[in-house]
């Protein structure tokens, strides 16, 4: 039982990260019908920015700032940096191809993905960097729940993810920008006819999705400590899987899909073997696609009347 609950916490941690990545895929797909293959690399860059801030502050063992200041700073820098990177990718790799056949921006996306991986390899080499989080926030610090201790870092990750997802939900449902995003996603020309500057709305969508990926990068750095140039590949693939499982283009779907994938991975690793976790994740993808091709929350492709 204890073990089971411990895995629940693991799964929720991983799931939070996948959900945040999935949101970026889903939002961009919703508005441009484009699979942003470079999204995993935006997440990777976020993890490196967090690492950069940590290193500049003296490293986890001997930081010049208290952890309560340093960690938020890492998040903030990574989120802004990743957000701006997302906007730049849209501006230079996708916007010029807006009216080209749909395969063109897709190829461009794959190109950006390789480019960012190669750039990270050149800049940081293939060495795996470590956040060394336990030295900053000892894993022994945490909350006791019965016989179980949940480390502060995991609580921090889950709570931050929940706060970000609530904020996103409010933004999309309540604010002027959020409504413009939904209108643009549904019918770009009609949105333009209302005077909505759809280019700016699309840029804002990339910014927000990339901000979430940046936060996810720091979270993974804090919990699993392994930061390297190729880390965006598998995480991106799983975030994408989560988005598809939830119903791509659907925001609550991305959140649920992310949690589902995270939990599946944690339990597969715990009860089978960590070697099987990928197998289980992609089996879920295939299973959902067979039963509900448009995803758990997706509406079957309906005709516009």
């Amino acid at each position: 039982m204890e073990f089971f609950v411990q895995q629940l916490v693991n799964g929720l941690t991983l799931g939070s990260v996948y959900a945040l990545i999935a949101l970026g895929y889903s939002m961009v797909y919703g508005i441009l019908k484009l699979l942003n293959f470079a999204h995993g690399e935006v997440y990777m860059v976020g993890a490196f920015i967090g690492y950069g801030v940590l290193t500049m502050a003296g490293g986890a063992a001997d930081p010049v700032l208290p952890a309560a200041v340093l960690v938020p700073l890492m998040f903030l820098a990574a989120m802004i940096g990743s957000g701006l990177l997302g906007v730049a990718i849209e501006r230079f790799a996708y916007r010029p191809l807006r009216d080209a056949p749909r395969i063109a921006p897709l190829i461009s996306a794959v190109g950006v993905s390789f480019f960012l991986q190669a750039a990270a390899l050149l800049l940081f080499t293939a060495r795996i960097r470590n956040y060394d989080t336990p030295e900053l926030i000892p894993f022994s610090v945490g909350v006791e729940v019965g016989p179980l201790r949940i480390s502060l870092v995991r609580i921090l990750v889950i709570v931050t993810a929940v706060v970000l997802m609530v904020a996103l939900t409010l933004l999309v449902s309540r604010t002027r920008l959020g409504k413009a995003m939904r209108a643009t996603a549904y019918d770009r020309e009609a949105a333009a006819m209302m005077g909505i500057d759809t280019d700016r709305v699309i840029a804002a969508t990339f910014f927000i999705g990339s901000v979430l990926a940046g936060a996810a990068g720091v979270m993974i750095g804090l919990v699993f400590s392994r930061v390297f140039h190729f880390m965006g590949f598998l995480a991106g693939l799983k975030g994408f899987t989560a988005a598809v499982v939830g119903g791509i283009g659907n925001i609550p779907g991305a959140m649920v899909g992310g949690l589902l994938i995270g939990l599946a991975e944690a339990y597969a690793a715990a009860y089978l073997s960590s070697r099987f976790s990928e197998l289980v994740v992609f089996t879920i993808l295939i299973g959902v696609m067979l039963v509900r091709p448009s995803g758990l929350f997706g509406t079957p492709a309906l005709q516009k009347v």
Binding site: K179, R182, A183, Y186, E189, A190, M193
Partner: peptide
């Protein structure tokens, strides 16, 4: 033409 409402809104 065709109204083009934002149906899901």
């Amino acid at each position: 033409e065709n109204r083009r409402l934002f149906s899901p809104m």
